[in-house]
Design a binder for these strands. Structure first.
Lengths: 233, 233
DNA sequence: TCAAAAGTGTTCTTGATACACCCATGC
DNA sequence: GCATGGGTGTATCAAGAACACTTTTGA
């Protein structure tokens, strides 16, 4: 089947930058999920999951579909990032790509879950391999967006397990923003928003005092948000 | 001339939301430039300036080109906003549109300057006519972006003449953010950044005390910006 | 001389920062 | 019993908010 147009059209793709946060390591890291390409161009190179937009789906749907098809990940936070359209960004011909950012809880999305998961891997964002196309730029743009967004919207919680400790939350912010926070001041601030609920559970297992577990009160956040509330860190 | 593809592709367009600020009126207003369509679909309706992306130009270049072709405006601040891709947003067939926001100095861009200027008009953003396609949504998204951006980046100056008074600057911020500022606190804050230079000129003509004119020190801003400086209002 | 906007400082309140010790747990 | 991270309060400082009068100009 083939199609004819009066004027040539760029191909239209979506690509996803997927961020995960590993708080279990010695030094916690923000990571991105990449796919090893098994077809040309850039065969054998790492790239962001993505693919072409179909004629009857929205861009959001295309991003969600590619995310699921290539990594098995679904039902996660995802938002449009930026559209990349340099004429030479794809050697096959003009391809414009609408990039998305997804935030996932690493624990829920260990690999081997996805269809093509054998060729997928998480990389720390400052130890990325060489990436196909202009994907290095896409990741860089996504990191900037994440850093900007995390400061005035509570998106960071998307990167944590449903239940988390205050130290984990602090580590997350410190990792993303590349700075440190004073423990007491951080807790005071977070406390002030009244957006965390003690679950009653405790995180134990390490040779130190057990830590209380919390979950994010997204209902309350949505209610506050409507009244012009500002989360700011 | 016609072109054949194996898979159908959406058409790719750019659209521009152009903001101007009229500070001469009784109640100052943020305005948007619209074009009256003289071809189907939506013939006779107002729409944002825009058109299809050519195969050899970047998205930024396409937006700048359409801006110039349809309104005569060039060399202004312009940035990518968001990409709209609902499958039914264009009755002619699947068309994805990369929207841009431009900020212009109204005084420099009175109409009749552009090629098709006879069919262009400025509308206050809260008295927009019915717009073609999903352009109402595009404008709404642009306003939100402007409101967010103006608070932590000095983009507002793009909307003013090169020389402006502090009252004009304050009116601009009050109009965009839909709030008022205390005159003394506002001036103190702006002063604190050291980003305004007195030009020596005065704005006179009204039956009240003449006002000093300033210009924005963009060199100094760029220098500060590199060292992690934050403009915040 | 009047109306209208320009210009200018101080006080108070609030939020941000700095800082150090005891507690519970697993080994 | 010790090493490790969890948990807590106060004092200081800086920035934001509130607030009113004098000056200059054109008509």
């Amino acid at each position: 089947m083939s199609f004819t147009y009066k004027y040539p059209r760029p191909a239209l793709a979506v690509d996803c930058v997927i961020f995960g946060f590993d708080h279990t390591q010695e030094t916690p890291e923000l990571q991105t999920l990449c796919i090893e390409r098994n077809i040309a161009p850039f065969k054998g190179k790492w790239a962001l999951p993505g693919g072409f937009v179909q004629m009857d789906e929205t861009l959001d749907a295309a991003a969600a579909r590619e995310l699921k098809e290539e990594t098995g990940i679904e039902n996660v936070y995802i938002e449009q990032l930026y559209t990349f359209g340099a004429p030479d960004r794809d050697p096959r011909g003009r391809t414009v790509s609408v990039a998305y950012v997804a935030l996932v809880n690493l624990e829920k999305h260990h690999l081997d879950a996805g269809t093509d998961a054998k060729s997928a891997a998480w990389f720390p964002i400052n130890k990325l391999p060489a990436l196909a196309f202009d994907h290095k730029l896409v990741v860089k743009t996504a990191i900037e967006r994440l850093r900007g967004k995390v400061r005035y919207q509570p998106v960071g919680f998307e990167l944590l397990p449903d239940e988390f400790t205050l130290s984990e939350l602090q580590m997350l912010y410190e990792t993303i923003l590349e700075r440190t926070f004073d423990k007491r001041n951080f807790r005071k601030k977070i406390d002030g928003y009244g957006l965390l609920i003690e679950t009653g559970g405790m995180r134990r297992g390490k040779p130190n005092r057990a830590a209380k577990l919390y979950r994010f009160d997204s209902k309350r956040y949505k209610a506050l948000e409507k009244h012009g509330f500002l989360f700011e860190l």
